[in-house]
């Protein structure tokens, strides 16, 4: 304050001059018609730019609200973009016939997420409870099996991959002999079929099919091909090493297998 006063006193003549000059200008504009006209004209010319300058300043102060409004607009538009949509259309491959009754529905699905490769692999598909996906339904690809549905939410399902150590699938040969398919958690190209009677003749290259006994996969879905067989001494069974016909860790377009007879069959099994 003191400094301010000192500035005022040392520049007293300047402030007096400015004040009196402004007063003079006011008098000039107020009491002289030519100058008044000039001032009015100048003002009308300059007013536009002055107004636009103040408008710029004011809109700058509004930037925060503007930004928020734009962000809301972006969010709204992103909601409309195709990536944000969940396709509910389904292509159900079924038909009505006098001779045959539909047993399996195939529901297209995409793999939208998968666990990093490890001994227990899982993956997520974009089909869920809303489309009647239930735990226990099988997932197949055009060339082999992929896994079994484990948990279901409204729009998505978690699938235990065939490359999961706790998976058990009923698999057999064309002859009808069958065993249990499992994975030992090592090589993703090979699975093992156990509990196959040791007297059954198996050649390398024989095809392994799903049996359909567990109501998960349709009967005669190709799983893979026998690479090697090994009799387990003392158990009366042999183990088959099977090369998978597909690559479960790379599948992205899959089908959900919905067994329409599942309830009926499981009722019988428990009785």
């Amino acid at each position: 304050m003191q400094q301010l006063l000192r500035i005022f006193f040392t520049n007293g003549s300047f402030f007096t001059f400015v004040a009196l000059q402004l007063l003079s200008l006011y008098c000039i504009i107020s009491f002289n018609s030519p100058q008044k006209a000039i001032a009015a004209e100048t003002w009308s010319i300059r007013a536009g730019s002055v107004r636009s300058a103040t408008e710029t300043a004011r809109s700058y102060l509004d930037l925060e609200q503007e930004n928020e409004a734009l962000r809301q607009e972006v969010a709204r538009l992103r909601q409309q973009s195709p990536e944000s949509l969940y396709a509910t259309e389904r292509i159900v491959d079924s038909f009505r016939d006098e001779t045959f009754v539909q047993r399996y529905n195939f529901l297209t699905a995409h793999v939208v997420n998968r666990s990093p490769y490890r001994p227990n692999n899982t993956l997520i598909i974009d089909r869920g409870k809303n489309l009647d996906v239930r735990p226990g339904q099988g997932i197949v690809s055009p060339t082999g099996i992929v896994g079994i549905v484990d948990q279901v939410t409204g729009n998505h399902a978690r699938v235990l991959s065939v490359l999961h150590q706790s998976i058990r699938i009923s698999a057999g040969l064309a002859s009808g002999a069958f065993g249990t398919l499992r994975w030992d958690g090592r090589d993703p190209r090979y699975v093992t079929v156990t509990d196959l009677a040791d007297y059954i003749e198996v050649q390398a290259g024989d095809t392994i099919f799903s049996t359909g006994y567990s109501n998960v996969f349709p009967t005669h879905q190709v799983i893979g091909f026998v690479v090697d067989s090994e009799v387990q001494p003392g158990t009366g069974s042999q183990n088959l090493t099977v090369a998978l016909s597909n690559k479960p860790v790379e599948e992205s377009n899959v089908f959900v297998v919905q067994d329409l007879f599942k309830d009926e069959l499981s009722d019988l099994a428990t009785e």
């Binding site: 003549s13 001059f17 003079s24 200008l25 008098c27 000039i28 504009i29 009491f31 002289n32």
Partner: peptide
Amino acid sequence: ESLGVHMAAATFTGY
């Protein structure tokens, strides 16, 4: 009869 004009000029000259 030109209130302000000489005022401005004189003020400026004084300054």
